[in-house]
Design a protein around this nucleic acid. Structure first.
Lengths: 265, 265
DNA sequence: CGGTTCCTTGACGCATATCAATCTGTGTGG
DNA sequence: CCACACAGATTGATATGCGTCAAGGAACCG
């Protein structure tokens, strides 16, 4: 086993003992140490360089990728050059795990955004482990479910929401992820990338920023600052609400104002 | 075990012997008979009535649903009444399997479109079986991967394609599913439902139909008829192409005309 | 500094949503 | 069997919101 992998495993076990868990399901959750070793035996750590294409649409998927550092986006290109950004991933996240189980061809391009390192696990190993280690299979199921749920949100946003609403929803998600106590949020990607992910042009994105500023949500450079803790509440919905501590209490503006509006009929 | 379930199991085993496989991954593929029995022991068969809501957005997910007959759509409603259709499902398909593994709350409404019957499997049973029966876990992975891939296509369509292109792409998918030899395709859902799934209004859908008619794709009532076998080729892409017998041969108009156009840097 | 990349702002046009009217098919009751 | 009602689909007229094009500004880097 590579030296880099050994270090990674050590780090993983250390973190596990410290009970650090950010809520995002991971490939490695709850795996026994021998199973972890087996899984990673044939894996490698590779460098990724910003801007480089990691895998192209239509390519055979030989590996499952786990990001150790840096960031990656997955997108599709249509024949007339338009692109649609499907996901934007950071450290700890995984991609191509879906293609291993259906299709074997990548439905998307994966492009490095920020340089960093990835763990690559041979597709064949992933398949084999999924059939032998039920915990591993369940981790994959959790990850895939999460991806799918995010995709549903993305569809819903694009179909039913205005650009400003999409932006607010995206910001709210960031806010929840980065710990909802801070009044400042760092934009993890460049604006044009986020814009494309939201299905709008950079120009419209920019105008939406101007709009949302009036609602107490200010963006300077790549830093988002909120006027107050409830500035983003307007963009809340049932899905996000479930992980909000104030949801369904009188402290939740949305619930207080519009109780039951989701429940009609 | 219910009588209805017994009949279902018998039917499943019979079909398995006959090697009938329509390419869509199923929950029950390759399960041993005892495992199948265990899985279905606590399941039930229920009737669904057209128009009725099966599960609401935000509900706790107590069952995984497998459609035996009839059809179902899943959609989200935004606060201002707009709806976005995520999936449209027919017999043999499954829903809510994703929520069982992440979130436990349904991200969508599920509404019966055509009356029929469903098999409902308790969520807890599904979880337990996934941890004990690796084959079952892999079936779930395949199904989820398929859902996710479809969601990616849906996002890509809405972001990057014109209404006519979306329509053509949707028709092409239908064409591939229903056996690509026939010149006639039945629309499995009512037009307004399809329109919403494609992220357009019924009016725009209708106008797109008029456009696409000029390209040799005619729709009368709910029957789609093609002028020739290649009428839909214009809407092909890499993902669909992979399951087309003529792809990457000189018989494929697209490949012949525009070879490599997807591959440019 | 000058060059590059990214973001912003403005002016404009078009495509799609919206609103409204008509048409078509289907089922219902007399 | 016809008249009627109703839902869904189509067609037309209008409006508007977003994309497109173009120019200017801001930050970064050699």
């Amino acid at each position: 086993m590579e030296k880099a992998i050994e270090i990674f495993v050590e780090d993983l076990l250390r973190r596990r003992k410290a009970h650090r868990d950010d809520g995002i399901p991971s490939l490695f959750d709850g795996l026994s140490e021998p199973n972890l070793q087996t899984l990673l035996f044939s894996s490698h750590v590779v460098e990724i360089e910003a801007g480089k294409e990691i895998i192209a649409q239509g390519d055979d998927v030989a590996y499952v990728f786990h990001i150790l550092g840096g960031s990656v986006k997955t997108q599709r290109f249509s024949s007339d050059g338009k692109e649609s950004t499907i996901r934007m991933l950071g450290a700890g996240e995984t991609f191509m795990e879906d293609s291993v189980f259906f299709g074997y061809k990548s439905p998307v391009h994966a492009i490095a955004v920020k340089s960093g390192r990835m763990l690559i696990i041979p597709a064949e190993t992933v398949q084999r482990r999924a059939l032998t280690d039920p915990q591993f299979a369940c981790n994959l199921l959790k990850i895939l479910s999460r991806h799918y749920k995010n995709a549903i949100h993305q569809i819903d946003s694009i179909v039913a929401k205005s650009p400003v609403e999409r932006l607010g929803y995206y910001f709210l998600k960031l806010h929840m992820e980065q710990g909802s106590d801070s009044m400042e949020i760092a934009l993890p990607f460049q604006k044009s990338t986020i814009a494309n992910h939201l299905g709008i042009t950079p120009e419209t994105f920019s105008r939406a920023l101007a709009q949302i500023k009036k609602m107490g949500i200010d963006v300077e450079q790549d830093k988002l600052s909120l006027r107050d803790a409830y500035a983003l509440c307007h963009f809340c919905d049932l899905d996000i609400g479930q992980s909000c501590p104030h949801f369904n209490t009188e402290r939740c503006h949305l619930c207080a104002d519009e109780k039951g509006r989701y429940r009609q009929a």
